[in-house]
């Protein structure tokens, strides 16, 4: 199968301190892949380097076995919600419409088909009633869903999402993960930065564990182990106990499948 993302010696250095160091992996397609690691471990940096938003100091990455520039329209990037100014004067519709601009160039008006895609994307994240709402009047979870709708509108094959579950309530999180799973079932690949160890095994079939360097990468069953998690998160008491309780859940799976 063709790989979704591969990186070779990928290294990004800010102010002489490496944020990611010598990252080498090849990820499968058609899976929901988690990227996990403590704060400051380079998760956002990794996504930005793959998307060409920052130039790596060393190494390179490929998407669908090609240069990013050749497959850009097949890739969608969902930034961390806090990275934009939500006071910008725009409506929910305006922001989601940005997802259609990539293929439109400077002038071309949005076609009926574009409008349908936008409407549909909003419906998929349950934001239809908010279509004309100003983005400054949204809650954090609603902002997150607007970003997801914009990504859906891009109709890509690979989605890179930076912490899509931050600041959303349990019901919304469940709705989002169901959406991601249905996208996966439609053959899409999703690369998702995530923080919660407890839900990780449920959400991800494949994982990248990061702590500036690559600690482990592989199917969840193989890499979500006490040893690897300790290496990823270090030895602090709180994280260790979190790891322990996360693993306990693993022993008594609560999956309802």
């Amino acid at each position: 199968m063709e790989p979704s993302v591969e990186t070779h010696n990928l290294t990004v250095i800010y102010d002489k301190k490496p944020a990611i160091w010598n990252i080498d992996f090849t990820l499968p397609t058609g899976k929901i892949i988690g990227i996990m690691g403590p704060n400051g471990s380079g998760k956002s940096t990794l996504l930005k380097a793959i998307m060409g938003i920052i130039e790596p100091n060393i190494g390179y990455s490929k998407v669908f076995d090609k240069e990013l520039d050749d497959v850009r329209t097949r890739v969608s990037y969902v930034p961390q919600r806090q990275s934009v100014d939500w006071d910008f004067p725009a409506s929910v519709w305006d922001v989601v419409a940005m997802g259609r601009f990539a293929t439109k160039g400077l002038f071309k008006r949005l076609s009926k088909e574009d409008n349908d895609i936008i409407t549909e994307s909003l419906a998929k994240v349950n934001m239809t009633p908010f279509t004309n709402r100003q983005i400054s009047q949204l809650s954090g979870g609603q902002q997150q869903r607007v970003f997801l709708a914009r990504a859906l509108a891009q109709n890509a094959d690979l989605y890179l999402m930076d912490e899509p579950f931050v600041g959303v309530d349990a019901a919304t999180e469940q709705a989002i993960i169901n959406l991601l799973k249905s996208m996966r079932d439609a053959g899409k690949t999703l690369l998702v930065v995530h923080h919660d160890l407890h839900t990780a095994q449920d959400y991800f079939e494949h994982m990248v564990l990061l702590n500036s360097r690559l600690v482990a990468e592989g199917p969840t069953d193989e890499v979500f182990t006490q040893e690897i998690l300790t290496e990823t998160y270090g030895g602090t008491l709180t994280t260790l106990s979190k790891v322990a309780s996360a693993l306990k859940e693993k022993d008594f799976p609560m999956r309802h499948k």
Binding site: K48, M51, I53, R72, Y77, P79, S83, D85, A102, R150
Partner: peptide, 10 residues
């Protein structure tokens, strides 16, 4: 509005 997203779109 969103320079990172713009950059990601090329």
């Amino acid at each position: 509005f969103d320079p990172a997203f713009a950059a990601a779109m090329g």
